[in-house]
Structures are given as structure tokens and as C-alpha cells.
Amino acid sequence: MTRQDIEREVRDIFLRAFEIENPEMDVNLREAYGFDSIDAIELLLEIEKFLDSELTQEEKKQAMDIRTMKQIIDYIEVLAAKRKTLPEKNK
């Protein structure tokens, strides 16, 4: 899974789940798009679906500090590397 794959998926999630089209990489999502804590939970569940793997409580807690698209992509990259496997559907 490349960083571009992750970015494409995250943009798709934002469009599908939050109706936010092409969010900028470095803007604060809460300030720019009103992305709230409930949205953050939704995002976590979408990430679980994307990785085809349940996140641990610790991993979920780490996600609560994320503020930008870039941080989301970094976060997923780390998770994917930890799991070292690609879900079939995303290959």
C-alpha cells in the first residue's frame, strides 16, 4: 500500500462519509470543516474497514489528537506498516 493509495482512500472516505470534497492537507479539519469528535469516531471505523483490521484502544486514543489530513495519512501509514498486510480489496 503506497501513501498515494492511502490518500486516495481517505479522500474517498471524506467525500462519502462527511461530504467534504478534497480537504486540504495541512488545514485544521475542525476549524475548516467543522469536523467533530463524532466524525473522528466515524473516521476510525472507516479506517478499520479499510485496513480490514480492528484497532486497539490505544490506537484509537492516539487518533483523537489528529487534526489534519496529513496526520490522518501518517497515522494510517503507521497502522498499515504495523499490520504489514494489505487487505485484498485494497490491493
Partner: peptide
Amino acid sequence: SPAEMLGEAMIKNLE
């Protein structure tokens, strides 16, 4: 309250 539904507190409440 939003303060109770942010960060770690939110995950704890959901769990």
C-alpha cells in the same frame, strides 16, 4: 458535554 466526549474520554465512554 463536548469536553467529556473528546480524546481518550470519548473512547472510554464508547467502550
